[in-house]
C-alpha cells in the first residue's frame, strides 16, 4: 500500500491551480464542508482527544505533584524529577533500557535482515520457512513470556539441551540470576520480533532493482560489496522506519518483562516502563509514576517525529 505516495499526490492536487474544466474539477466532493461531515470527523477526533491527548497532558500536570489518588494532589514542583537523579532503581531501569534498545534493536534487525536476504528469492519451500519464522509474531508477549519461562526452568528444555551438546549449566536458574535474567528475556523477545523485521525487509527488498545487483555481480563485486553498496542504499527508507519503530517499541516494552520476571530479581530486569507501572499502580505513587512516564515520552518523541516525517514524506 503506498500511503505516502497518495499523501503527496493529495498535496499537489491542492497546491497546483486546477485548470481542468467543468464538473471534474478537483478531487473533493464539494467546496464547502457539510455539517454532517464535520460530525463524522469530530466524533472520532473527540474520542481521541478525550482518551489520548487529555490524559497525556494530564500526566505532565501530575508529574509536578505528590498524590496517592485520594484527596487533592499536592504540588511539589520539580521534586519528582530531582528525586529520580538519586533513585538507584531508576538508574538501573535507564541502564537496562539502553541495553534493551541496543540489544533488542540491534539483534532483531541483524537477524531479520539476514533472514530476509536468505528468503528473498522465490524458490521451493521459501513460503514454509517464512511462515515458521514469523509465526511467533502473532503470539502475545504474555504468551511468549510464559513459553520461555517454561523453557528456562532449572530442569527445563534449555538446560537439558545445553547439557546434551556438552555444556553443563548445572540447572542454571536463568530468570532468577541477576546476571542472566535480562539477557534471557531478550532472547525471548527477539524470537518474536525477528519475523516482523524480516517481513518489513522482504517488502523493502521487493522494491530493489535486481538489475543493479546483477550488473555489480558482472563487474566482479563480491556478495558483501553488493549488499553494502548496492542493496543497503536502496533500503534506506525501510531502515529509517525500522529504526524508529524499533526504538519506539523498545521504550514501550512492558508485557514480556512483566510476564517473565516483573522486573525482578531485586529490580535487575526493571525497564522504565515496568518501573513506571510498579510505582504508579503497585505503590500508588501517582506523581512520581507520572514523572517517569514523562521521561519515557521525552525519550520517545524524537523517534515519533522521525516516523511521522517518514510516513508523510513527499517523494
Amino acid at each position: 500500500m503506498s500511503l505516502t505516495h497518495d499523501l503527496s499526490r493529495n498535496r499537489r492536487a491542492t497546491l497546483e491551480p486546477d485548470t481542468r474544466p467543468g464538473p471534474r474539477r478537483g478531487r473533493r466532493l464539494s467546496r464547502r464542508v457539510p455539517p454532517v461531515v464535520w460530525l463524522l470527523l469530530l466524533i472520532p477526533f473527540l474520542v481521541e482527544v478525550g482518551w489520548v491527548f487529555y490524559p497525556a497532558f494530564n500526566s505532565f500536570q501530575l508529574s509536578f505533584t505528590k498524590w496517592n489518588g485520594v484527596g487533592a494532589a499536592q504540588p511539589v514542583g520539580l521534586r519528582n524529577y530531582t528525586d529520580m537523579l538519586s533513585d538507584p532503581i531508576f538508574a538501573t531501569a535507564l541502564r537496562n533500557n539502553v541495553f534493551w534498545v541496543l540489544g533488542f534493536g540491534g539483534l532483531s534487525v541483524v537477524t531479520g535482515l539476514a533472514l530476509a536476504l536468505a528468503l528473498n528469492k522465490p524458490r521451493r519451500g521459501v513460503g514454509i520457512y517464512r511462515s515458521a519464522i514469523y509465526l511467533p509474531m502473532v503470539f502475545s508477549l504474555a504468551v511468549t513470556g510464559l513459553f520461555w519461562r517454561v523453557m528456562y526452568q532449572p530442569d527445563g528444555p534449555v538446560n537439558v539441551v545445553l547439557a546434551g551438546i556438552g555444556i553443563n549449566t548445572k540447572e542454571h536458574q536463568w530468570l532468577a540470576d541477576p546476571n542472566t535474567a535480562l539477557g534471557a528475556i531478550l532472547v525471548a523477545a527477539i524470537w518474536r520480533q525477528a519475523g516482523y523485521i524480516m517481513v518489513l525487509y522482504l517488502a523493502g527488498l521487493k522494491g530493489c532493482d535486481p538489475a543493479l545487483e546483477e550488473a555489480a555481480a558482472v563487474d566482479g563485486a563480491s556478495r558483501w560489496q553488493r549488499l553494502r553498496y548496492i542493496v543497503m542504499p536502496q533500503l534506506r527508507n525501510v531502515n529509517t522506519v525500522i529504526f524508529a519503530v524499533t526504538v519506539i517499541d523498545s521504550l514501550r516494552t512492558f508485557d514480556i518483562v512483566w510476564a517473565m520476571t516483573r522486573g525482578g530479581p531485586y529490580n535487575t530486569t526493571q525497564l522504565l516502563s515496568t518501573y513506571m507501572y510498579q510505582v504508579g499502580f503497585t505503590l500508588v505513587n501517582l506523581g512520581y509514576g507520572s514523572a517517569l512516564a514523562v521521561v519515557i515520552f521525552l525519550l520517545a518523541i524524537a523517534f515519533i517525529i522521525t516516523y511521522l516525517a517518514r510516513a508523510t514524506r513527499e517523494d
Partner: peptide, 12 residues
C-alpha cells in the same frame, strides 16, 4: 496520538 508510549496515558 497512536505513536505515544502508552505509559504517558496509564495513570490519567
Amino acid at each position: 496520538g497512536n505513536l505515544l508510549p502508552p505509559q504517558i496515558l496509564l495513570i490519567p
